[in-house]
Computed example of a mutant assay.
Amino acid sequence: MTIELTWAWLEGYPSLDFANTVIRRGWTEHELVTSVADLESWLDAAALPAPRPESVTEADLQAFLPLRDAALRLLRAAAGHGSRQRADVETLNEQLISCPEVLLLGDDPGTAVSRSIGSPPPFTVLLTKLAAAVRDVLTDDRQDLALCDAPGCGQLFFQRRTNQAWCGPACGNRARVARHQTGHR
């Protein structure tokens, strides 16, 4: 099955946009980033927590996927779907350690600027910032992280209402239609 990459579902939360590069069609999950071109496309569309690297390589893609997989499993576990695995925590922490930062005073009063120690490659900085965004969601006291369980979705989202079950109206409609069709069989 071919999936068109429109990235229309991106919500502007780097941690979720990172994890949601796997999508479900029916009940089968599909990888959306299978090539350097797919990764380039996602980098163009996503809200990134660090500057976009000028270009990416196959090695960057191979670094992206395992970190994304760990982030996806950890965020799903935090949303109540699956269990938190130590190996995923270690993967995230290894990325955070690979590009340490210091927090410096900014030019304006009351501001701070984060700077990487040394001169890491831009893609390493980006992956570390994405790992930090995931860490921040996992360590924040948010209670609104959820998994859209509508057929054909499976995306993580932040609930806007306490009883919100789906990431958006289209998924709610699909879930209601599926429930209706199941009731009439």
Score class of each variant (00 low, 15 high):
Val22Pro: 00
Arg161Asp: 15
Glu29Ser: 12
Thr111Gln: 02
Pro14Trp: 01
Ser116Tyr: 04
Gln62Arg: 11
Thr6His: 08
Leu127Ser: 02
Gln164Trp: 05
Ala175Glu: 07
Val33Met: 12
Val33Leu: 10
Gly110Ala: 07
Leu67Phe: 05
Leu67Val: 01
Thr124Lys: 06
Gln85Ser: 09
Cys153Ile: 02
Val113Phe: 09
Gly110Glu: 03
Val56Tyr: 05
Ile23Ala: 14
Arg161Tyr: 02
Leu67Gln: 07
Arg52His: 03
Val137Gly: 11
Thr128Ser: 07
Arg179His: 10
Glu29Asn: 07
Gly168Ala: 13
Arg25Gln: 09
Trp7Thr: 06
Ala146Asn: 15
Arg161Trp: 15
Val22Trp: 06
Thr162His: 14
Glu90Ile: 12
Phe158Gln: 03
Leu145Gly: 03
Gln164Ala: 15
Thr111Leu: 13
Glu40Pro: 02
Thr182Tyr: 04
Ile23Glu: 13
Asp140Lys: 12
Leu32Ser: 06
Val56Arg: 04
Phe157Gln: 02
Ala19Gly: 07
Ala71Asn: 03
Val56Leu: 04
Thr139Ser: 00
Val89Met: 11
Asn93His: 06
Gly26Lys: 02
Ser114Cys: 09
Glu29Cys: 10
Pro49Ser: 06
Leu75Pro: 02
Ala45Pro: 02
Asp140Gly: 14
Ser15Pro: 08
Gly82Gln: 03
Pro49Tyr: 05
Arg161His: 10
